[in-house]
Write a protein that binds this DNA or RNA. Structure first.
Lengths: 185, 185, 185, 185
DNA sequence: CCTTAATCGAGACGGTACGTCGTGTCTTTAT
DNA sequence: ATAAAGACACGACGTACCGTCTCGATTAAGG
């Protein structure tokens, strides 16, 4: 619903109310509750409909540049109201497991999906070993960025992003030869 | 306030109300608002007073064992009401930067503090290079665990914890010689 | 609202609270505030709906008897919770002129209306001159009774009522012939 | 207490709070409660100390002029915060009879006292029969004025005051000869 | 002159009511 | 028959005063 998105961008997730969404949409609360069971569901749907967390994975031919670009994109997204939305939804995951699953599906697929595309290309170029794609190392960069955002807010300092990439991500995913040159060099 | 903690453990952060805390403490809402400016401040204080996020860093003589133990302790903590509290407070960090800072100080110091103690001992044993202590790599384990908890809830699967330690943490912090022996050994 | 009246009769105007009225009516405070802007408006409406200040003017064929009966009826009414209500509303007339007007319309019409009916019949019988009906003398009895109640409380002594009628009211409204016989006789 | 009077004139009786009086007097609420048992007592004392309801009975040599002047003085008083105070105190008379008595003594003596002085002089001049002094007729003018104020607020229209005097008061108190000359003349 | 009392201001306390807001459901209108 | 508009019961919010009570600090009186 476009009214929902407008409310989200104007007042943020915490201040969004069903009343206001209904009023702005020139409809009734009952209509909202017919389609969504509550605030969180409404917001999730509004976000995923609008492709809020969609990212087009950069393709520069260089893994490091790709990852840096991706993280900067994610950081920029979090600076928008989406940051507050993510916080709010994480808080509401305590309600039930079903709802938690829904949130994960709709909101947290973006980063991991994009990073796996980037990594897949690096694997094709021989920079990264294929087994990395299915390991925990694949999502370390986005995971750390998300953690950084949640604790320290957005935008994430570019130094932190570079740190995550050069100090943690690249040493973990680049294959041996690259690894040694990067870490010990 | 002990009444706050009782409410937190019984009904969780999301369901905690000032009215109930006041009633249980046999005091008045006014008294609560005199000391704390709202629900979040009250909870933060209650938690930090009670040392909710205090951890005694394990000391087994083995870095891997220490870290595994620590992460399991943190996971256990998050399984308690503290998990919901953390989620709620992260959501409320949008209010203002001052409040966000307060939350970071009171709640997120535990993990990093404990891991740095563990790492310091590993440095003394020669397992880890001193520069790691001040690098981003030091907190990678707790950061990833926190991220895992926030996305997937508690308790965190022990396999995930082991994965974080063996796939990410140890390769990043152990020096070359140790690295090969530990990971490939 | 019947709940309001019950509260009024049980605890009086001063002790009536919106919370209790809402609770007793098995409704919500919000519903009360939607219809009435505050305690006073609620009470006014409750009283006038229930015809609290309605009086059926006595018709004995004798002006003196009629007026005595009326004043005794009013005195009896004031002895009920209505007395406290009147006091409370008079105090709240300071709020604004609009509200003051409302109170006058709803609560103070009873006495004057009844007395004018009584006087009109006396006019038909030739006991009272028609011009009295529109003069200040018409309401002297009820005005003095009200003043007496406000200063000295209810019930008003029957001697006072008789005094008001014989010493003040009748000498003022009875026509010349009657006047001389009554006052100087 | 001067602070009480200042509060009364600035915010009126209804808005007067013990906290503010204490703050303005640079003293403590405890000190107030040591001397007075509540708001009403405090206000009564403050008023009677300051002679708020003191009136100096006019002496023009003419009963009608005296009474008109007196009523106009009273009306002027009621236009000041004293009007609201009177309303508030009348409302609080429901508390207990002892308190009601206190209010009557302190606040309602002014009008009646002054009018009896005026009437006494008229008796000396032979305009009024002595028995009037102890009858209900003596206070009719002030009683009606008070009633008028309570119902319709202050200031009381001068026409009303004149009406009370010429239509009600004088016909009741002037002796026969004066009566006919005054009313019909 | 010092000490002990008493008194004071300042203000926190437990309560209670306020009036507002948001929720999720249920009812009324008016197509 | 549907859907907007909105009333409804519920309950938490944060504020304001109430009247009481506990502090130190400042006096004042007594030793």
């Amino acid at each position: 619903m476009t009214a929902t998105l407008e409310e989200l961008t104007e007042t943020g997730y915490a201040s969004l109310t069903m009343d206001r969404v209904a009023a702005r949409a020139r409809t009734s609360k009952a209509a909202l509750y017919r389609r969504w069971s509550g605030r969180a569901e409404l917001v999730i749907d509004a976000c995923s409909m609008h492709g809020v967390s969609d990212l087009d994975p950069p393709d520069t031919g260089d893994l490091r540049a790709d990852v840096l670009t991706l993280l900067r994109q994610v950081s920029a997204k979090m600076t928008s109201p989406l940051g507050g939305i993510l916080r709010g939804l994480l808080a509401e995951m305590t309600r039930d497991e079903e709802f938690a699953r829904l949130i994960r599906e709709r909101l947290h697929s973006a980063g991991p999906t994009a990073i796996s595309v980037i990594l897949a290309r690096a694997v094709e170029r021989g920079q990264v070993e294929p087994r990395i794609l299915t390991s925990r190392r694949a999502t370390v960069a986005t995971d750390l960025l998300r953690n950084q955002f949640l604790l320290y807010g957005a935008p994430v300092d570019d130094e932190v992003i570079i740190d995550i990439v050069d100090e943690v991500f690249l040493p973990l995913v680049l294959n041996q030869r690259e690894d040694t040159s990067s870490v010990s060099g």
